[in-house]
């Protein structure tokens, strides 16, 4: 993991960990306990995440209050739907270690496993 994207990940995870809306100041106070970081860095990171459609924000007095657009579970489910789609359903170039298999291929593979595991039993 590298660079600025790291911080975006950390900020997203912390926003998800909060039940309600969170301000830049609150997240800055949390992060400052972990590592040296500038307030403006946290602010621009959250602004980026808002611009990229990951965070919603509402003006509350002088500050913005941020909430995640969707929960972490919702994003995971969406990613899995795309990843597990039948071949050709998605245009993303996902290289699966083992591609989605039809019933026949699964059966052949199960048979291979039985033979390999059971030696010459057949």
């Amino acid at each position: 993991m590298r660079g600025f994207g790291d911080l975006e990940t950390e900020v997203m995870h912390r926003v998800w960990d909060h039940d309600g809306p969170v301000t830049v100041r609150e997240l800055f106070d949390e992060l400052r306990g972990q590592r040296p970081i500038a307030y403006t860095t946290v602010m621009s990171t959250m602004d980026n995440l808002h611009r990229k459609g990951w965070l919603n924000r509402d003006k509350d007095g002088k500050a913005y209050r941020y909430t995640a657009v969707a929960s972490r579970d919702e994003y995971s489910a969406r990613l899995m739907r795309e990843a597990m789609a039948e071949a050709g359903d998605t245009e993303a170039v996902l290289s699966h270690f083992v591609a989605q298999m039809d019933g026949e291929e699964s059966a052949v593979l199960g048979e291979v496993l039985r033979k390999l595991a059971g030696g010459e039993r057949a």
């Binding site: 990940t9 990843a83 597990m84 699966h96 270690f97």
Partner: peptide
């Protein structure tokens, strides 16, 4: 990368799903 949990020392991320799958994108 944002929603997954980093798997330490591997550079990979983990997503919760009972179906075994591994892929790169």
């Amino acid at each position: 990368l944002l929603a997954g949990t980093p798997l330490p020392g591997t550079g990979a991320v983990v997503l919760p799903d009972p179906r075994p799958a591994a892929y790169c994108v």
